Computed example of a mutant assay.
Amino acid sequence: MRLALIVEYDGTDFSGSQFQLNARTVQGVLEDAATTIFGSQTGRIRMASRTDAGVHAVGQVASLDAVTEMSHGEIRNAMNGNLSEDVCVRLARSVPADFDPRRAAIAREYRYVINDGPVPTPTRRRHEYHVHRPLDDVAMADCAQAFIGVHDFTSFAAASIDGGSNVRDVETANIRRTDDGRIVFDIRANAFVRQQIRRMVATLVAVGSGSRTKEWVASLVATPRRDGATQNAPPQGLTLQRVVYEINFEREPPLD
């Protein structure tokens, strides 16, 4: 059967989500666990969204082929029994044999968390970006609206390894300040170019600190250019929240 796995991980000690030789990755540890349980016939695990080293996920989706009579719950528990504490399979579900977690996705949702308080929070340092000055979150929220729509995001893209298009459809881009004083940036799009969100966040921080204007950011969107937003916000503030499909894995009844 082909299985869809919803995977959560703390990205701090991973060299990203995608398999790399001689590096610890989320895909690599999932494949090791699957091989231990199901044998070598499982083959390569596919991932819905590529995350950089240090980036986290609570709703990453992977696909796995396995010959098994185990229930969904038994598969989930067996995988977690062979995974380290910084990654887990939250859910396993059967899907059609041609399901591809990347190509079948209709949207991805990410969240970035900023702490602009006077001191860092050591217990949250792996999951937020501490900016050493107060930011104007109202100006940032206004500026973020420039990202919404179908645009060429070359200004916010790292160099592409495949030379593909940088056109993406951003559905929502919202900034809010939480009750505990954090600034949270939530963004949803059909897909993202490499390092797009971290570069967006860096531009929003520049606006919030007063060093850049809303018009400058709007010009980066309107006039795509490689020398546009060249600064990256650090990875630890970013989390993949959810990958959206026509079918809702969370609501599909399990076999167990």
Rank of each mutant, 00 (worst) to 15 (best):
residue 68 T to G: 04
residue 69 E to F: 01
residue 70 M to E: 01
residue 71 S to K: 00
residue 72 H to V: 02
residue 73 G to N: 13
residue 73 G to A: 07
residue 77 N to T: 04
residue 78 A to L: 00
residue 78 A to K: 00
residue 79 M to Y: 06
residue 80 N to I: 03
residue 81 G to E: 01
residue 81 G to N: 00
residue 81 G to V: 03
residue 84 S to Y: 00
residue 84 S to N: 04
residue 84 S to T: 13
residue 84 S to G: 08
residue 85 E to S: 13
residue 86 D to N: 04
residue 88 C to M: 04
residue 89 V to D: 01
residue 90 R to P: 02
residue 97 A to K: 15
residue 98 D to W: 10
residue 98 D to E: 10
residue 100 D to G: 15
residue 100 D to N: 13
residue 103 R to Y: 14
residue 103 R to I: 10
residue 106 I to R: 13
residue 106 I to N: 09
residue 107 A to R: 11
residue 108 R to I: 08
residue 109 E to G: 09
residue 110 Y to C: 04
residue 110 Y to S: 02
residue 112 Y to F: 05
residue 116 D to R: 07
residue 119 V to W: 07
residue 119 V to Y: 07
residue 121 T to Y: 13
residue 121 T to C: 15
residue 124 R to N: 11
residue 125 R to W: 11
residue 126 R to L: 14
residue 126 R to N: 15
residue 127 H to F: 13
residue 127 H to T: 15
residue 127 H to L: 11
residue 128 E to P: 06
residue 128 E to V: 08
residue 129 Y to L: 12
residue 129 Y to F: 14
residue 129 Y to E: 09
residue 129 Y to S: 09
residue 130 H to Y: 02
residue 130 H to E: 04
residue 131 V to C: 09
residue 133 R to N: 09
residue 133 R to Q: 14
residue 133 R to G: 14
residue 134 P to W: 02
residue 137 D to R: 12
residue 137 D to Y: 14
residue 138 V to Q: 12
residue 139 A to K: 05
residue 143 C to T: 13
residue 144 A to Q: 03
residue 146 A to V: 13
residue 146 A to W: 02
residue 146 A to G: 07
residue 150 V to M: 15
residue 150 V to F: 03
residue 151 H to M: 05
residue 151 H to G: 06
residue 151 H to P: 06
residue 154 T to C: 12
residue 154 T to Q: 15
residue 155 S to W: 03
residue 155 S to V: 11
residue 157 A to H: 06
residue 157 A to I: 08
residue 158 A to N: 14
residue 160 S to T: 08
residue 162 D to R: 11
residue 163 G to D: 06
residue 163 G to K: 05
residue 165 S to L: 09
residue 165 S to P: 02
residue 166 N to Q: 07
residue 167 V to H: 01
residue 167 V to R: 12
residue 169 D to S: 13
residue 169 D to L: 13
residue 169 D to Q: 11
residue 171 E to K: 12
residue 172 T to I: 07
residue 173 A to K: 05
residue 173 A to E: 01
residue 173 A to L: 03
residue 175 I to D: 01
residue 177 R to E: 04
residue 178 T to W: 08
residue 180 D to T: 14
residue 181 G to C: 08
residue 181 G to T: 05
residue 182 R to E: 14
residue 183 I to T: 06
residue 183 I to S: 01
residue 184 V to S: 03
residue 185 F to I: 03
residue 185 F to R: 04
residue 187 I to F: 06
residue 189 A to G: 07
residue 189 A to M: 07
residue 190 N to R: 07
residue 191 A to T: 04
residue 192 F to M: 02
residue 194 R to D: 05
residue 194 R to Y: 13
residue 195 Q to V: 07
residue 195 Q to W: 10
residue 195 Q to K: 05
residue 195 Q to P: 01
residue 195 Q to G: 09
residue 196 Q to C: 02
